[in-house]
Amino acid sequence: MPTKAMFLMIKQALQKPFTNPFPVKHAPVNVTALIEKVQKGEVQIYPPIPIPEEFRGKIHYDPERCIGCRFCITVCPANAMEWIPELRKIRHYVSRCMFCALCVDVCPGKKFPGEEKPVKALSISEDFLLADYDKYSDNLIEEPPEAKEKGL
């Protein structure tokens, strides 16, 4: 007895795949060779699906705007913020972050002369490809540049 499900499945087989084959349609045999080919422009990769307007990606930290109020440390549920007492600034570990963006909501920011409104030190970026081998790599820690120079 033919059922509705049978027709659905036959219809499915004739349609284009629903998912986005990012970055390439089939898993490559040699990944390094594929990356080289992409860099030379021989192979085209499928772009990722565009992210929505208010997507919560990696937190960006601007130490110039930070006033050292420590509100972000108070509210952060994952304890991803570390206080640097010598500089009165914070260090943000992206590997611990859970992307709730509470710190962005709570950040008062700083007003430079000539500006009408204060600009927040913490902001949400659209960055979401964060895979790394080392959780303490430079890509995954947001800190003031002086902290790195002085080794704090």
């Binding site: 499945m9 499915q12 629903f18 929505p52 208010e54 997507f55 992307f99 709730c100 963006a101 509470l102």
Partner: peptide, 25 residues
């Protein structure tokens, strides 16, 4: 897979409103 294909639509709406597909904060 057919039902989960239909589920994508609501997850897209959730992502649009809250900023993430899961853990909406």
């Amino acid at each position: 897979f057919w039902t989960w294909k239909g589920r994508e639509k609501v997850l897209d709406v959730l992502e649009l409103i809250t900023g993430n597909r899961i853990n909406y904060a």
